[in-house]
């Protein structure tokens, strides 16, 4: 881990033994998350935005849509473009270019998890003409780091994509086979379908224990960890019509990304167990986040003043 938290060996032994007993330093059980706070619509200069806090970890996500000209639609990479900025507010180690290695690791994980045609079907609608397309930039600012940044990034990106609004445009043919783009008089916007967007979970080995949602102290004791990105698979996708089945179950899911981080070694049995833990936990995350995002009272929370609360 890139954060600098110094623990003595006795402190590490205490944390590891506690985790193996099913108790953590803050009283959580191995598969408990710290309180998660998610707000959308927190920035006025973006097409979509969200703020995520897991414990003290704080991320700010903005989505910007830019209309670009391209040579040909055949060579255009129609994907989300992730950029992670580790702000020095999180730690003085991130001054200047200090956080770039960690930021690149995060953005590479997000790129890989979203690099398929399944998770965002509306990407096809971003192509407007043979030479024009919307390009979506997803920018993440890490404001405070208290462990488990990848889970917070996954939650925040889904919330920000849910909040994203893209203007409808009029495409007109012009001379020489070119096209012009106009804005209609009514300011209509369309929103992305986020029902298949993946969420991340980081499963960590402390001694023989496997836990989720590492705090900073626990990350200092982690031997190895596995990052998993899981997208829900809906009943209609499989072709079966079992109406009694809930939309998201951990046996109905698609893993879009998996990576082992922080070195260490893993037995196949341990890896399989960690994957199963991750799938179960991420199913609960999907359910909780979907409930949160359809909350109708979110306007009462004054999201533009999120830092004043």
């Amino acid at each position: 881990m890139k954060m600098e938290v110094r623990l003595s060996d006795a402190e590490k032994v205490f944390i590891i033994h506690g985790a193996q007993e099913g108790l953590r330093a803050d009283g959580r059980s191995p598969f408990d998350y710290r309180p998660i706070t998610i707000q959308t619509g927190v920035l006025a200069t973006t097409n979509g935005s969200a703020r995520v806090r897991i414990g003290s970890t704080d991320l700010l996500i903005g989505v910007k849509a830019e209309l670009i000209n391209m040579e040909s639609v055949a060579v255009y990479r129609n994907r989300l473009n992730f950029f992670v900025d580790c702000s020095a507010n999180a730690t003085p180690l991130f001054v200047g270019r200090g956080g770039e290695e960690f930021a690149d690791e995060l953005s590479a994980a997000l790129d890989a998890a979203y690099d398929n045609n399944y998770v965002l079907p509306d990407l096809k609608k971003l192509i407007l003409s043979p030479t024009h397309a919307w390009k979506l930039f997803v920018d993440i600012v890490l404001l405070q780091c208290d462990g488990n940044v990848i889970d917070a990034a996954g939650l925040g990106v889904k919330a920000a994509l849910k909040d994203t609004e893209i203007s409808e445009v009029i495409v007109r043919p012009a001379d020489e086979g070119k096209y012009t783009i106009d804005l209609p008089d009514d300011n209509t916007v369309w929103k992305l379908d986020i029902s298949r967007v993946p969420l991340f979970v980081s499963v960590n080995r402390l001694g023989t224990a496997k836990i989720v949602d590492n705090s900073l102290a626990e990350e200092a004791c982690t031997r190895t960890s596995v990052w998993i990105a899981v997208a829900p698979q809906f009943v209609s996708d499989t072709g079966h019509n079992k109406s009694s089945q809930s939309p998201v179950k951990h046996d109905n899911c698609i893993i879009t990304f998996m990576r082992q981080c922080d070195g260490g070694t893993l037995e196949i049995d341990s890896l399989e167990e960690m994957i199963n833990i991750g799938l179960k936990v991420v199913g609960q995350l999907h359910e909780a986040l979907d409930r949160r995002l359809i909350d109708e009272n979110w306007m009462a929370e004054k999201p533009l003043s999120t830092f004043l609360q």
Partner: peptide, 8 residues
């Protein structure tokens, strides 16, 4: 250090 977020 002065930093402007890319979406600011």
């Amino acid at each position: 250090q002065y930093s402007m977020a890319t979406f600011s």
